[in-house]
Amino acid sequence: MVNYRYLGNSGFKVSEITYGNWITHASQVENEAAVATVHRALDLGITSFDTADAYANTAAEEVLGEALKGQRRESLEIFTKVYWPTGPAGPNDQGLSRKHILDSINGSLRRLGVDYVDLYQAHRYDYETPLEETMQAFADLVRQGKVLYIGVSEWSAEQLRAGHALSKELGFQLISNQPQYSALWRVIEEKVVPTSEELGISQIVWSPMAQGVLSGKYLPGQAVPAGSRATDDKSGANFIKNFLRDEVLEAVQRLKPVAEQAGLTMPQLAIAWVLQNPNVSAALVGASRPEQLDDTVKASGVVLDADVMTAIDDALSGVAETDPAKTVSPKGRPTD
């Protein structure tokens, strides 16, 4: 079964393997398979589920809501997000204005079929809305009982500090950040993690397997496998292409004996690696088939010894991205 960790400086616990439906539900995977995968996640002890209103232009929330129908609500931790365009992408259909936040939460609750979400996250930082307006809207949702906790995604250390200060003034907790993080993408380590530890904010990390590259299935000098994520624009092909350089793929292949020595599969090693960071509360995993989860959940509770951690660092030396400046949000609101 899956272990639990506290989220930020709160009493709220989440499953350290959290199911995310970014590129699967209502997109890559047919609804029947998506529902079966969610049910398998529940069987394996995953009770935390992450989605967003923008995923498949709101349809992913509907699929998740249908999959969780009939489950005991109190036994689930449901996360969603607001910021990216939804609907017809009109002038108020994106961003973190009070109007968009209040409209969006009502739509998310309706699609998910719940009265509240456990964690509501600012999907990026909105440079076009005063931060005070955004945080006041979040505070109101907490007081209304529509949201229990507030988080953000891909905020810089400076943005986290400013948001945390306002949340304290307004009487609620900012408890989480959702950044990309993997053994190949470590940009949060220099600034975001130390600031978060100081403020009592945890990380819920996405892409712990670097869009599947850390599975080892992409080989240097060879075409990407047919039907893989790298061949499907709907499945994050634009995100994965930066990891498909031969020098990166060669480095990843050097992890295979490390995984074997640790008694782990490559996916398990990748997920266990992010969970060694004490500031990480959960690793987001997706699946297109239920049986894929059977492998990845075994990373829960794994402790990698110092020699294994060093071997991973050595294997990926020179190809892991560490530049903290790469934690960024769009300077202007997207429109599509």
Rank of each mutant, 00 (worst) to 15 (best):
T231C: 12
A230F: 01
A89F: 09
Y218G: 01
E132I: 01
G221D: 02
Q28S: 12
I78K: 01
F138R: 05
R186W: 00
L7A: 04
V14T: 10
L316Q: 10
N279L: 06
S228R: 00
Y120V: 12
V63T: 11
L199S: 09
F49T: 06
H39R: 15
G212N: 07
E321M: 13
E158C: 03
E32P: 00
P278D: 05
P130K: 03
D336Q: 14
F49C: 08
P290K: 12
V308D: 03
L219N: 00
Q276F: 14
T296V: 15
E32R: 14
Q94S: 15
E61I: 04
Q253S: 12
L199V: 02
W84G: 00
G236W: 02
Q121G: 07
R72V: 13
A26H: 00
G90I: 07
Y149M: 08
T24V: 10
R186G: 05
V308A: 11
G221T: 06
L166E: 03
K168Q: 15
E197T: 07
P324Y: 14
A272L: 09
A162R: 13
A54F: 05
K298L: 10
K331L: 12
I101G: 01
R111H: 05
I175P: 01
V29T: 15
T58E: 15
L316M: 04
D140C: 06
A325Y: 00
I312N: 03
S288K: 09
S176N: 12
V205I: 08
T195M: 15
T58D: 11
D93F: 05
E16V: 04
E128R: 05
L44A: 10
Y127R: 07
S182V: 01
E132H: 05
A139F: 01
N238F: 08
I150L: 08
N242A: 08
L284C: 06
L166K: 03
I17P: 02
G163P: 00
T24K: 04
T51I: 13
I240Q: 06
F239Q: 05
V248I: 14
G20E: 07
V280T: 11
S235I: 00
V82S: 06
E190V: 01
A320D: 05
K99R: 14
R124S: 10
D50T: 11
F239C: 07
V328G: 02
M1N: 00
A165D: 06
P334A: 13
Y116E: 11
V302F: 08
T310F: 13
A162N: 11
A226K: 14
E61D: 11
F138Y: 02
A36K: 15
K298P: 02
R143S: 12
Q94I: 07
G95P: 00
K241T: 13
G145K: 08
I105A: 09
A325F: 01
G332L: 10
